[in-house]
Design a protein around this nucleic acid. Structure first.
Length: 368
DNA sequence: AAAACGGGGCA
DNA sequence: TGCCCAGTTTT
């Protein structure tokens, strides 16, 4: 491909389309780097339609980085609940404090400084740098990869590690508009999201179709090429709901697994489909929680399946009736009793939320 | 370089 | 059911 002098045909046609094709989003109305950063973190691997309401709630509750830095991590998790990829919430909070301490409360305006923030990678740093400061950094997200791979004939695996740099190289080779970074980045992403879509691309109305490799060669449906090697593991979670005086027993999940720091019920995991025996549950509760249950073990709900990117979680819910003789939880116990007004405010995985809110068979009914 | 990390919407 | 989303971090 030959280097071109700006503005290229690609840019002209793209901008002409963007005059009417731009999507309206709340975070586009500002140059405030804090709000742009917030929107970009929320939108990582998240559809715009999903992220928008979260963004509006975050901006209202934390209008500036000082407010976010001053909040507790629990507050941030609560607002983040249901959005997924929870390390984003943790890093968001951490980076807010990092901005207060290392950058004296002023959002950094250099690419390398922005990139140094936790949870900010090459895409997000380029997005903030271009949208907030109009610095000449091209963004490479799913939209850009798709548009460029189709237009400029990139036929290698788009999921491979090398793809990111390859797309950057193609952009640098006469496509990216270094004179108007914010406009260019925004236009390509809007275009990829609304015209050059993954499925059902609108090639009929595409302003770039005459020069698009994929369209001219009939390979729009095949590009970008994705070779996915990972298979989903199946895990079985057996949740045990223990109630005492209107309170439910919870435990906070720990590191090195999904749902880090979120709360769930006492749980036994198995790796094949099997019902829990009363013996297993009783032993677990006695040894791990210090709770004695009676002879009755009720399977009250489930299975409930939840698909994650790399795992399939199948959850069962059991209820045990606690005996009188149980001891108090020790002070260092990871388990904690919570009343209803408390456990409706904490961050829980979707599956636990489903049990709490969509529980057609209530514990109360069962015990009556 | 590959695996892990959520959840939702749509064909 | 599989795809794919305004990706980043860890292994």
């Amino acid at each position: 491909m030959t280097p071109r002098s700006a503005p290229t045909l690609f840019q002209q046609q793209l901008y002409a389309w963007h005059k009417t094709g731009a999507r309206p989003h709340p975070w586009k109305a500002t140059r405030d780097p804090y709000k742009i950063w917030l929107s970009e973190i929320i939108l990582q691997q998240t559809r715009v339609e999903t992220g928008t309401s979260y963004y509006l709630r975050f901006v209202e509750r934390f209008p500036a980085v000082e407010a976010l830095a001053a909040a507790t991590l629990e507050e941030v998790y609560e607002l983040w609940k249901g959005l997924g990829y929870y390390s984003r919430a943790k890093n968001l909070h951490l980076s807010a404090q990092q901005i207060m301490t290392e950058f004296e409360g002023v959002f950094p305006d250099q690419y390398e400084d922005i990139l140094s923030l936790k949870g900010v990678g090459p895409y997000t740093a380029a997005a903030i740098a271009s949208f907030a400061y109009d610095l000449a950094y091209p963004v490479v997200d799913g939209n850009v990869k798709r548009v460029i791979s189709r237009y400029a004939a990139y036929e290698k695996d788009i999921l491979a590690s090398a793809a990111h740099q390859d797309i950057l190289d193609l952009l640098a080779d006469g496509l990216f508009d270094a004179a108007h970074p914010a406009q260019f980045n925004q236009a390509v992403m809007d275009f990829g999201a609304t015209v050059c879509k993954p499925k059902g691309a609108l090639c009929q109305i595409c302003p770039l179709r005459e020069d698009c490799y994929a369209h001219q060669s009939g390979r729009v449906a095949e590009l970008p090429l994705r070779i996915n090697k990972v298979k989903r593991k199946t895990r079985y979670f057996h949740y045990i709901i223990i109630e005492r005086a209107g309170e439910l027993l919870f435990r906070q999940r720990q590191d090195k697994d999904i749902w880090q720091n979120l709360y769930e019920f006492p749980m036994i995991e198995s790796y094949q489909q099997e019902a829990l025996t009363h013996q297993e549950v009783a032993t677990y509760l006695r040894e791990t929680v210090g709770i004695m249950i009676g002879d009755e073990l009720l399977h009250i709900k489930g299975p409930r399946q939840q698909l994650l990117s790399h795992q399939k979680i199948i959850s069962y819910f059991y209820s045990g009736i606690e005996q009188e003789a149980s001891e108090e939880l020790s002070s260092d116990s990871p388990f904690v009793w919570m009343p209803a007004d408390k456990y409706h405010q904490i961050a829980v995985p979707k599956t636990i939320d489903w049990y709490l809110h969509d529980n057609s068979i209530s514990l109360f009914t069962l015990k009556a």
